[in-house]
Design a protein around this nucleic acid. Structure first.
Length: 178
DNA sequence: CCCTGATTCGC
DNA sequence: GCGAATCAGG
């Protein structure tokens, strides 16, 4: 794949927007992140504020006005549920780092007869997925807020524990589909 | 281990 | 010019 004007232009744009080299590579398609980084250097548009990796959560950045952290004392969390945890995600190199409570909107109707853990999606976008993030889709692919589960996928599975169960139904529980 | 960008160097 | 390999780091 050669660097057409359009591809270079997109590269510049995305780089300026703070996307990581791998994300840009994924979006351009057919190029490795190394190729992107190499090109960035040749174009002499390195830099981008601060940076080596994700400097977001550095020591004293300006402030963290949007950091909200709550410890949930979940009222009715089944014993089989996962402990409350905080999910941290970073968008872009010098972009905001969002930290939010992973606990779902406390009204999840948990079927009594189920011992399945409620899925907690990270709502990632396509370019944010890696080989070990759950690729279970949420919502309409054509919709704006379409996202993927994004939780850790076990081993080489394309899904996290919960979605793997949903995706690969045990033959014993499968009702004769039609 | 996951990820990041930076550099080098054979092509 | 290109990008894989490598390096340095979070």
């Amino acid at each position: 794949m050669n660097w057409t004007d359009e591809r270079v232009e997109l590269l510049k744009k995305l780089w300026a927007e703070g996307l990581s080299a791998s994300q840009i590579a994924a979006q351009l398609g057919n190029v490795s992140r190394n190729a992107v980084i190499g090109k960035v250097h040749r174009l002499k548009l390195s830099s981008r504020g601060r940076a080596t990796a994700a400097p977001a959560a550095k020591k004293k950045m300006v402030a963290t006005p949007t950091t909200v952290q709550r410890t949930v004392t979940a009222a009715a969390r089944p014993a089989t549920a996962q402990p409350p945890r905080i999910i941290t995600t970073t968008v872009g190199a010098n972009a905001l780092q969002m930290q939010f409570d992973a606990e779902p909107v406390a009204n999840q109707q948990i079927r009594p007869a189920s011992d399945v853990v409620v899925p907690i999606s990270r709502r990632l976008h396509l370019v944010e997925l890696s080989e070990r993030t759950c690729k279970w889709p949420n919502g309409d692919p054509l919709s704006e807020d379409f996202s993927f589960c994004g939780n850790d996928a076990k081993d080489a599975s394309p899904y996290c524990g919960y979605h793997a169960k949903v995706a690969f139904q045990p033959v014993g529980e499968r009702r004769r589909a039609r």
